[in-house]
Measured scan of single mutants.
Amino acid sequence: MIHRILNHSVDKKGHVHYLIKWRDLPYDQASWESEDVEIQDYDLFKQSYWNHR
């Protein structure tokens, strides 16, 4: 379960990846995930991330 999205990056092919802080895990366990991976409520977290940038 996502706690929040910390950052994003765009690779050379134009694909967006998000650095995800996972609920109940420390920050050093955050991981980069592609924008099209199937994660519960991912779209809501991405929308919230962009609304607050």
Results as ranks from 00 to 15, higher is better:
Ile20Asp: 01
Lys12Tyr: 11
Val37Ala: 15
Gly14Arg: 03
Ile5Gly: 00
Tyr18Cys: 06
Trp32Glu: 04
Ile20Asn: 02
Leu6Arg: 02
Ser48Cys: 13
Ser9Leu: 11
Arg4Trp: 09
Lys46Pro: 01
Gln47Ser: 13
Asn51Arg: 15
Arg4Gly: 07
Arg23Phe: 08
Tyr42Gly: 04
Asp24Ser: 09
Trp32Thr: 00
Glu33Cys: 15
Ser34Ala: 12
Arg4Cys: 13
Arg4Glu: 14
Ile39Ser: 04
Arg4Tyr: 12
Leu25Phe: 10
Val37Ile: 10
Asp11Cys: 08
Glu33Arg: 10
His3Val: 05
His3Asp: 15
Val37Tyr: 08
Ile2Leu: 01
Pro26Tyr: 08
His8Arg: 05
Asp36Met: 08
Trp22Tyr: 03
Phe45Thr: 05
Asp43Pro: 08
Asp41Lys: 06
Ala30Lys: 04
Gln40Lys: 14
Val16Leu: 12
Ile2Gly: 03
Gln47Ala: 12
Met1Phe: 14
Lys12Ile: 11
Leu25Gln: 13
Phe45Asn: 05
Asn7Asp: 14
Asp11Ile: 02
Val10Glu: 07
Val16Gln: 06
His3Trp: 10
Ile2Phe: 00
His15Thr: 14
Lys13Ser: 12
Ile2Thr: 05
Arg23Pro: 02
Leu6Gln: 05
Met1Ser: 10
Val37Thr: 14
Asp11Glu: 07
Asp43Ala: 10
Arg4Gln: 10
Asn7Met: 06
Glu35Thr: 07
Pro26Gly: 13
Gln47Phe: 09
Asp24Asn: 13
Gln47Tyr: 08
Asp36Lys: 13
Glu35Lys: 02
Leu44Asn: 12
Asn51Tyr: 09
Gly14Ser: 03
Leu6Lys: 01
Trp50Arg: 04
Ala30Gln: 01
Leu44Cys: 09
Ile20Val: 09
Leu19Thr: 03
His15Pro: 01
Ser48Ala: 15
Leu44Ala: 14
Asp41Asn: 11
Ser48Lys: 14
His3Ala: 12
His17Ile: 13
Arg4Thr: 13
Ala30Tyr: 02
Gly14Trp: 04
Ile39Glu: 00
Asp28Ile: 05
Lys21Gly: 05
Leu19Val: 02
Ile20Met: 05
Phe45Glu: 04
Ser48Leu: 14
Trp22Thr: 01
Asp41Phe: 09
Lys12Gly: 13
Gly14Phe: 04
Arg4Lys: 15
Asn51Trp: 07
Val37Met: 15
Val37Leu: 13
Ser48Phe: 10
Ser9Ala: 08
Gly14Ala: 01
His52Pro: 08
Lys13Tyr: 10
Trp32Cys: 03
His3Ile: 00
Gln29Val: 06
Asp41Gln: 10
Gln47Cys: 07
Arg23Trp: 11
Asp43His: 11
Asp28Ala: 15
Trp50Pro: 02
Leu19Tyr: 09
Leu19Asn: 09
Glu38Arg: 08
Ser9Ile: 13
Lys12Phe: 06
Trp22Gly: 01
Asp28Met: 05
His17Val: 07
Leu6Val: 10
Ile20Gly: 03
Tyr27Trp: 11
Met1Glu: 14
His52Met: 11
Asp24Met: 06
Val37Glu: 13
Leu6Asn: 03
Leu25Val: 10
His15Phe: 08
Ile39Phe: 15
Ala30Ser: 09
Arg53Lys: 10
Met1His: 07
Ile5Ser: 02
Pro26Ala: 04
Glu35Leu: 02
Ser34Gln: 12
Ile5Asn: 00
Ala30Val: 06
Leu25Cys: 11
His52Ser: 15
Gly14Met: 00
Ser34Asn: 11
Gly14Glu: 00
Met1Ile: 15
Leu44Trp: 09
Leu44Glu: 10
Gly14Leu: 03
His17Glu: 10
Glu38Ala: 09
Asn7Ala: 13
Trp22Val: 06
Gln29Trp: 06
His3Gln: 14
Ser34Gly: 12
Lys13Glu: 13
Tyr49Asn: 02
Leu25Tyr: 09
Asp43Cys: 10
Tyr18Gln: 00
Ser34Lys: 15
Ser48Glu: 14
Arg23Thr: 11
Leu25Pro: 08
Leu44Met: 15
Lys46Tyr: 02
Trp32Ala: 00
Lys46Val: 09
Tyr27His: 14
Leu44Arg: 14
Glu35Trp: 05
Glu38Leu: 10
Glu38Thr: 11
Arg53Ile: 07
Ser31Glu: 03
Ile2Cys: 05
Ile2Gln: 00
His3Asn: 09
Tyr27Lys: 14
Ser9Met: 12
Pro26Val: 03
Glu35Ile: 03
Ser9Val: 08
Asp41Leu: 02
Ala30His: 05
Asp43Asn: 11
Ile5Tyr: 00
Ile20Glu: 02
Val37Gln: 14
Glu33Pro: 01
Arg23Gln: 12
Asp41Ser: 07
Lys12Asp: 12
Tyr49Phe: 05
Tyr49Trp: 00
Arg23Val: 12
His52Lys: 15
Ile20Thr: 01
Gln40Asp: 13
Asp11Phe: 05
Pro26Gln: 05
Gln40Gly: 06
Arg53Ala: 10
Leu44Ile: 14
Phe45Asp: 06
Asp11Arg: 03
Tyr27Pro: 14
His15Asn: 15
Glu33Gly: 03
Arg53Asp: 11
Asn7Arg: 09
Val10Tyr: 15
Gln40Asn: 08
Lys21Trp: 10
His3Leu: 07
Lys13Phe: 13
Arg4Pro: 03
Leu6Ser: 02
Gln47Gly: 07
Phe45Cys: 09
Gln47Pro: 03
Val16Ser: 04
His17Cys: 14
Ser34Ile: 02
Gln29Arg: 12
Arg53Glu: 11
Lys13Arg: 10
Val16Ala: 06
Trp22Phe: 02
Leu44Tyr: 12
His3Cys: 12
Val37Asp: 09
Leu6His: 03
Tyr42Ala: 05
Asp36Ile: 01
Ile39Asp: 00
Ser48Pro: 05
Leu19Ser: 04
